[in-house]
C-alpha cells in the first residue's frame, strides 16, 4: 500500500454526543480515485461519521484523529474543510427561505475562488458553468431563482446536492443517504451525476442503507458499520451478500 497517497485517514475515532458514545474507534483510509461505501443498520453511526467529517459542532471527538491530505481535519472549520475539498451531501438538505439558489451557489463558488487566489467569476462565465452543471442532474433552470431547497421535492433536493457538488468539484465527497427518498428514475439521474464527476484524482464515500444505490455507483470497498465500529470491510461483492442475508450474520460473527 502506498501510504503517501492517502487522501483521508481516520484513526481510532471515538465520538460522543451528550456523553453517549456513538463512534467507538473507527479506522478508514481513502485514496484518490476510490469509491467507498459505508453500510450498516439504523443507528450504527453512519450519519454521525459524515457529520463529524463535515464539522458539525454538536459532536465531540473524544479520541482519535482524521487527516485529510496529511492535515488535521478536525482543527478546521466547516468552511475551511469545504475550501480544502471536502463536500458533504446531506441526507436531509436544509431549506433556506429568502436566499436564492443562484445567489447561494455563486457566493460559495466565489468564496472558493478567493481561497485559491482567483478573481470572482464574471456573470457570463458563472451562468455558463451553472447551466452546464445543472445539465448533469437534469435540473430545470427555474430552480435557480427559487429559495435554496424551498418547496423542492425529495428528489429535487438530492439533485440540488449533486449540482452543488458538480459546481464545487470537491476532492472528497461524502454522500449521506443520497438514495433515500428517491424513486428509480431520480436515483438513476442522481447516480449518473455522481458517476460523471468521478475522476482518478477524487474520491467518494457513499453512506447508504441499501445496496440499491450501489447498482448505479459501483464501490471499490464496502465497510459495514455497527455499533460505532467497522465490523467488516470487503470488496463490492459484499453488497450482494448483505442484500441476500441482511446484517445479522455479520453481527453474529462478532
Amino acid at each position: 500500500m502506498n501510504n503517501d497517497n492517502i487522501m483521508l485517514k481516520i484513526s481510532g475515532l471515538k465520538v460522543s454526543i451528550d456523553d453517549r458514545e456513538i463512534l467507538s474507534g473507527v479506522n478508514l483510509e481513502v485514496r484518490p480515485g476510490e469509491v467507498h461505501a459505508i453500510m450498516g443498520p439504523n443507528g450504527s453511526g453512519k450519519s454521525t461519521l459524515s457529520a463529524v467529517l463535515a464539522g458539525r459542532e454538536e459532536f465531540k471527538v473524544t479520541e482519535g484523529e482524521i487527516l485529510f491530505e496529511g492535515e488535521d481535519l478536525l482543527s478546521l472549520s466547516p468552511e475551511e474543510r469545504s475550501w480544502a475539498g471536502v463536500f458533504l451531501g446531506f441526507q436531509y438538505p436544509i431549506e433556506i427561505p429568502g436566499v436564492t439558489n443562484i445567489n447561494f451557489i455563486k457566493t460559495a463558488i466565489n468564496e472558493h475562488r478567493k481561497r485559491k487566489g482567483l478573481p470572482a467569476l464574471s456573470a457570463a462565465d458563472f451562468l455558463k458553468l451553472m447551466r452546464e452543471r445543472m445539465a448533469y442532474v437534469d435540473m430545470d433552470s427555474s430552480f435557480t431563482s427559487r429559495g435554496v431547497n424551498v418547496g423542492f421535492s425529495g428528489g429535487e433536493k438530492k439533485r440540488n446536492e449533486i449540482f452543488q457538488m458538480a459546481m464545487l468539484e470537491p476532492k472528497l465527497a461524502i454522500l449521506d443517504e443520497t438514495d433515500s427518498g428517491l424513486d428509480v428514475d431520480a436515483l438513476r439521474v442522481v447516480a449518473g451525476g455522481i458517476n460523471r464527476l468521478k475522476t482518478p484524482e477524487n474520491a467518494t464515500i457513499v453512506i447508504t442503507h441499501y445496496q440499491r444505490l450501489l447498482d448505479y455507483i459501483v464501490p471499490d470497498f464496502i465497510h459495514v458499520l455497527y455499533k460505532g465500529r467497522i465490523i467488516k470491510s470487503a470488496g463490492r461483492e459484499l453488497a450482494r451478500e448483505i442484500e441476500n442475508r441482511g446484517y445479522d450474520w455479520l453481527i453474529n460473527e462478532q
Binding site: 458539525r56 469545504s82 429559495g147
Partner: peptide, 27 residues
C-alpha cells in the same frame, strides 16, 4: 442548520449570517 449548511459549501460564517439577515429583510 442553515448556517451549518452554508458553511459546508464554503460560505464563511460571517457571510452566511449576512445572507440570512438579507433574506430576512428581503420581504
Amino acid at each position: 442548520d442553515e448556517l451549518f449548511y452554508m458553511r459546508t459549501r464554503g460560505i464563511p460564517e460571517a457571510e452566511a449570517r449576512l445572507l440570512q439577515q438579507k433574506a430576512f429583510a428581503h420581504e
